[in-house]
């Protein structure tokens, strides 16, 4: 485990996590959440959990982003916060 890489990705994860709940557009939030999931996948492959990383890459970054986009497409992009 490279601790420098680990630290950098962990910090980025927090930034993207805050971004995904602060952005004032639900489609943007969905895409930011996809980026968050992908960074998490990177983090887990750094920490050696390859099976978890594979699952996160296919489930978190793939299918759940599609679900979010589908739900936002069927409802609205508007948000007050």
């Amino acid at each position: 485990m490279l601790w420098q890489l680990d630290l950098a990705v962990l910090t980025l994860v927090v930034v993207v996590g805050i971004g995904s709940i602060m952005v004032k557009d639900l489609l943007g939030a969905a895409i930011m959440f996809g980026a968050y999931s992908f960074l998490m996948c990177l983090l887990w492959s750094i920490m050696g959990a390859v099976d978890v990383a594979f699952t996160e890459a296919s489930v978190g970054a793939g299918v759940s982003t599609v679900f979010f986009v589908a739900a936002v497409f069927r409802t609205t992009r508007r948000t007050k916060d």
Binding site: V50, D51, A53, F54, T55, S58, V59, G62, V63, V66
Partner: peptide, 21 residues
């Protein structure tokens, strides 16, 4: 190797979702 039923199942589902999209 890494992988198994969960990951493969999600990818099979994703292939049909790609068709639908």
């Amino acid at each position: 190797s890494p992988g198994g039923g969960f990951q493969g199942g999600v990818m099979l589902g994703a292939s049909v979702i790609v068709l639908a999209m």
